[in-house]
Each structure stands twice: as structure tokens, then as C-alpha cells.
């Protein structure tokens, strides 16, 4: 997989968002990754650690939320999470098809420090 280039992109976006708000540090990176994308948390965290050294996001914690691959049954219409390598519907045994849930990959939110102009909006 290509966790190194993913980590570089995450840092680029996070630092851009942080600097627009005058933040001095990025302390948390919350990433949403669908199961189908196959990203490994340990590997992503490793490259984030390496690539963030010396910058405002150094030491930022990674929180990776994994979205399960979601299928819809073509026979009964039930939605279900994919289990193992099967596409079959657990209710009726019919054929499931991919719904698109499970292939996302985005930076959901970050936690910053020192961004005073936004401090009033935080709870």
C-alpha cells in the first residue's frame, strides 16, 4: 500500500488548515478510511511520525475510524456489513452488491493549538 504518500497528503492538508487559523500546533488528526481502501493504522501512524518531524504537526495523534464495507441485497433489499470474503445476504442468502460505504478516505477533522481567532467557537 501507499501509506507514505497518504501520510504526506494528510499532513499537507492539516498544516494548510492549521496555518489558515494561525495555529502553532496540530495535535490530533482524525482520518476516516473505508475498509475497502485497506489502509493500515500502524503503517499510516508510522509515516505520519516520520514525515511530521520538525513541523507543527510533530507528534500529532492519529485517530483512524474504519468504515465497514456495506452491501445491499439485490433480493430482499436488506443492508448489511460485509463479512469475510462473502457477498451473500445474512437474512435471505441473496446476492449483495457494494453501496459505496467502505471506500471513503478523507481527513475528517484536526485538533489545533494556538489558533486564537477560532477559540471562541470551541466548546
Amino acid at each position: 500500500m501507499h501509506e507514505a504518500s497518504a501520510a504526506a497528503s494528510i499532513l499537507r492538508i492539516a498544516l494548510e488548515e492549521a496555518s489558515r487559523r494561525g495555529a502553532t500546533r496540530v495535535t490530533r488528526l482524525r482520518v476516516v478510511a473505508g475498509e475497502a481502501t485497506g489502509y493500515m493504522e500502524e503503517s499510516l501512524a508510522f509515516f505520519l511520525g516520520v514525515l511530521s518531524k520538525g513541523g507543527a504537526a510533530e507528534g500529532a495523534a492519529l485517530e483512524l475510524s474504519c468504515v465497514k464495507t456495506r452491501l445491499r441485497c439485490r433480493s430482499c433489499g436488506a443492508e448489511f456489513d460485509r463479512r469475510g470474503s462473502s457477498f451473500a445476504c445474512p437474512s435471505c442468502g441473496g446476492p449483495g452488491e457494494l453501496t459505496g460505504a467502505g471506500d471513503e478516505f478523507y481527513l475528517d477533522s484536526i485538533e489545533i493549538e494556538g489558533g486564537s481567532e477560532w477559540a471562541s467557537t470551541s466548546s
Partner: peptide, 11 residues
């Protein structure tokens, strides 16, 4: 820390 909503595709 302040939470910032980003929601930007990594690629």
C-alpha cells in the same frame, strides 16, 4: 486544543 472540521479528500 480546538477542533477544526476539515472533511477533505486525502487525494
Amino acid at each position: 486544543g480546538i477542533d477544526i472540521v476539515v472533511k477533505r479528500a486525502i487525494y
